[in-house]
Design a protein around this nucleic acid. Sequence first.
DNA 1: CGCGATCTCCATACAACGTAGAGAGTTAGA
DNA 2: TCTAACTCTCTACGTTGTATGGAGATCGCG
Lengths: 261, 261
Amino acid sequence: MTSVYSGSGDPKRSIELLWGIQERPRRGPKPRLTVDGIAAQAIAIADAEGLSALSMRRVAAELGVTAMSLYSYVPGKAELVDVMADRVFGELAAAGDEPEGWRAGLELVARRSWDLYLRHPWLLQVATSRPLLGPNVIAKYDQELCAVAGTGLTVIEMDLTVTLVANYVHGAVRGAIEAAQAEQRTGMSDDVWWEQYAPLLEKVFDAERYPTAAAVGPVAGEELGAGDPARAFEFGLERLLDGIEVLIRGRAGEAADRDRV
Amino acid sequence: MTSVYSGSGDPKRSIELLWGIQERPRRGPKPRLTVDGIAAQAIAIADAEGLSALSMRRVAAELGVTAMSLYSYVPGKAELVDVMADRVFGELAAAGDEPEGWRAGLELVARRSWDLYLRHPWLLQVATSRPLLGPNVIAKYDQELCAVAGTGLTVIEMDLTVTLVANYVHGAVRGAIEAAQAEQRTGMSDDVWWEQYAPLLEKVFDAERYPTAAAVGPVAGEELGAGDPARAFEFGLERLLDGIEVLIRGRAGEAADRDRV
DNA sequence: CGCGATCTCCATACAACGTAGAGAGTTAGA
DNA sequence: TCTAACTCTCTACGTTGTATGGAGATCGCG
């Protein structure tokens, strides 16, 4: 989770970075690089090998400069990650037209977010709470809110609903990515891993003490096995939207009641 | 997220560690430490200062030994974190008696998990997908499944439902913890931070382009401001349980239909 | 009893990390 | 042309996890 923190630096500098307002330096040698170029290279590394492989030295090396050169473009690693995150959120905006109706809208929001995380798993480890108010993050927020506009929900409820979907997707995609990475990291498929693990576990696991786990675990493992976090995502999304529908129907009912009076 | 990986090591060794089956060494000097003691110290550090402050040297120093001593108890840092996680999950088992009914049960599961993460925020960064099948993790899984047993859901659905709740809580608590840590890290309350940020943002933010965000953002900020991720959690939990209720009601209906036929 | 296998613990070492500091070299405004 | 401002590099410091090898303690076995 969240192993890279953002917004530690000067807010003014961060805003300039994220929004690309770098007043052209008047003197000195022409910059060989750009913030966008650096961010793009960093994103490529993080996508391919994860955040742990992302180092200033590595990014610099691939750009043909030394690590310290980067510090004339970016105050530090944390701010670079902020830029990376905002750039990557930009992919969401490009994604086609909005469907009709809040349910299809929210579903699309969730799916787009899911896909985005799968493309950029390192995003899960970036703290997005406080700052990071880059142009693309704001666009994303707006896009999400639009999906639940006109449903009769209060403004606060709209925000809460959008947050709920975001939180759920985050949690679900984390499971999916962990599973995928576990396989990649250990070089062992889930099946193979279980084959090794199961006999060892049997020796210590007390089936009588945990009858429910003993009954469900193997079946769930068998059926869902080998990376069906995608199915878990679908299942959860359906339930989530059902729950939101209950709320929205209730609001509509209230409105109807008021009209009747 | 997830910045510490687990299960890279030998499964047999991991199982022994997690379940405490260390066959007493017959020869050599008496160990000065125990795995549990090491884990406890490590947990204390991580609780107080976060996973990033947790280093082998640090743990060792507080136990009065050198870093390398720890390696005779634990194969590496990853495995130590595994043990830490399992130990900490043990707190869930101790938590009182189970309520009647699936809804109250699931709600309690969610709340207990929420509380646990708040007590041990570093848990968010530990990959829990593959191994980690320590005694307490299994107990937790059993406890959660029990909450949805006897609802008419299939075994698979029980697993999916429990996963759904876990995923949601994970996502929600992440938001809460990030907000809290942002405040602590920057030494700035959300309000103060916004005061600094807002005027800068106004210069670059185009309210006409994003009318919904412009309308909702300030209100949500005002009302929810200063760390009400707790409220977001409550709101989301309610929706989630409503959604699950739709499913369970549906299953009950199907059963009734079958009985009628 | 005493030898040797086996263990714990320590000191040292290595590569990699983010980045501070100082200096070399380039450019444009005065 | 002079100089302020800028980019880029080199070196260095304090971290990190952990590989390696050795010193000393302890027990099983002869």
